[in-house]
Each structure stands twice: as structure tokens, then as C-alpha cells.
Simulated scan of single mutants.
Amino acid sequence: MPLRRPLIVIGVGGHGRVLMDIVRVRPDFRLAAVVDDRFTEPELRGGLLYGPISTVPSLLLDEPDAELVIGIGDNRIRRQIAERLGLADEQYAALVHPGAYVSSDAQLGAGAVVMPGAVIGPGAVVGAHAIVNSGAVVEHDAVVGDFAHVSPNATLAGGAVVEEGAHVGSGAVLIPGVRLGRWSVLGAGGTAIRDLPDGITAVGVPAVALAR
């Protein structure tokens, strides 16, 4: 039996706990440690090391083959942590639940996470540290940018684009070829039928930007 790859999960909140569950059902990974700045000093719990994010360099010295995944749901904080650590892309694992479908023709970036029941179609691209949450669909040739988040049961139709840091709310839909701009939000249940610009929040069917 091949050796299980050590994995360090960053974050002990809700999203981090979901990633720990994925690790537990993946036969090719073992949970090596959990880090979060809510811990001020390293401590052992049930044989597993918990500690602050500052312990990552020493953990990697102890286990140089370890990979990491950032279990933080907030897109901006996820980016801040990646920038703070300054690690090469190769140090991050793309973590896919066994109950998800990912086409052999799709691309997953460093640290990307695909939750149970999600579907990633042919030619789709999921960027670095992006989240495709439970039951979400990223259809053929669609793009999820770095640090973006596609929430549960949301749908990106063929060729739709969610740019860097954008957030697609639960049950929201982008029709084919539509683009959601950088760090924008498409609210839960909304339907984007035309491109939406950077830095806005849009809601409704069809989705329109909220007044600032």
C-alpha cells in the first residue's frame, strides 16, 4: 500500500473542519497537523499537533514532504495567509472529496478544494486556493479564479468566468459565458445573465448591483 501523504490543514473553523473530514476519507492523505492563530502555543490533542500558523516552517522541517491546504472560507483572509507563508505552489495540495466528479480534462490549481457532490466539467479551470463547495457545478470550459468561492449548489454554466476572489452565493447561477468580476459577490439565489464588474455585490433574478 502506498504511503499516505502528510497534509497540514490551516484553520480550525467550519471550513477547516470540513477539510479535515475530507482528509479522513482520502486513503492517500493523513492529517499531520492543524494550525490556526487561535492557538498561541503548540499542543497535542489525541496525538495530533495543533499550533499557530507560525509553526508551519518547523513542521515542514520535520516533514519536508508535507503539503498544506488553507481551510478558511473568507477569500481575502485565505489570500493573506498564502501571501504570509510565501510558499511555492508545489507545497499546496489540491484536495478533492471522493464524492466529487472532476473531469480528467479539468485543471485544479494549488490549494484548490472541491467538496462532496461537486461537478467540474471538461476544460474547466479552478484556480489556486479556490473553493468549489458541496453540490456546486462548474460546467465545461468555465473558470473559477484564484481565491474565489463557488458556494453550495451554485452553477457556472459552460464558459462562465468567476474572477479572482469573487464569491458566488448558494444556489446562484451564471449563464453561459457570463463573467463575475474580481472580488465581486453574486448573492444567494441570484442569476447573472450579463457580465458583472469588479468589486460589486449583485442580487436577484436577473442579478443587479446593489447601490453603494
Rank of each mutant, 00 (worst) to 15 (best):
G71E: 08
A110K: 00
Q91R: 13
A160I: 01
G123I: 07
A128I: 06
G73S: 13
Y101K: 14
V173D: 08
V126F: 08
F147R: 01
V114M: 07
D74A: 13
Y92H: 12
I175T: 07
A118V: 02
D146H: 12
I70W: 01
H167R: 11
R76M: 10
V69N: 03
E164K: 11
L95P: 01
T155H: 09
V144A: 03
E164Y: 06
G169S: 07
L95T: 07
S103N: 10
V126L: 02
E163A: 09
I120Q: 01
G71C: 12
V102E: 06
H97M: 13
S104R: 13
M115Q: 08
G159S: 05
F147W: 04
Q107L: 12
I77G: 14
A154L: 00
I81E: 01
A100I: 06
H167K: 15
A82K: 02
G111C: 04
Y92L: 03
Q80E: 14
G109V: 06
Y92D: 03
G169I: 00
N153G: 04
V144G: 04
A124S: 11
I77N: 05
I70C: 11
G135E: 02
A106R: 05
V162F: 00
Q107A: 13
G158V: 04
G135R: 01
S151W: 03
S134R: 08
I131L: 14
A148L: 06
V113I: 15
G169P: 03
H140A: 09
H167Q: 13
V138A: 03
S134G: 13
P122H: 06
V96C: 07
G159Q: 09
G117D: 08
I70Q: 07
I131K: 00
M115V: 14
A142V: 02
A88R: 03
A136H: 03
V162C: 10
A157W: 02
G109Y: 00
A112H: 01
V125L: 13
G111Y: 07
L95V: 03
V69H: 10
V138W: 02
A160P: 08
I120A: 09
H167F: 11
L85I: 11
G71N: 11
G127N: 00
R79Y: 10
H97E: 14
V137I: 15
I175G: 04
A82R: 03
T155E: 11
G158A: 13
A124V: 11
I72T: 00
M115L: 10
R78W: 06
V69I: 11
H140Y: 13
A157F: 04
R79Q: 13
V143H: 12
D89R: 15
S134E: 09
I72F: 08
N133T: 05
A154D: 06
G159T: 02
G135S: 08
G177E: 05
G71L: 10
G123Y: 03
G135V: 00
V114T: 06
G169K: 05
V161P: 08
A160L: 13
V150S: 05
V144E: 01
G177I: 14
A142I: 11
S134I: 05
L95H: 03
V137N: 01
L87V: 13
A148V: 08
S134Q: 11
V114I: 15
N75S: 12
G121L: 04
H149P: 10
V150D: 08
A128Q: 05
L108N: 04
N133S: 12
I175W: 06
R84T: 10
G73T: 02
A112D: 01
N75I: 01
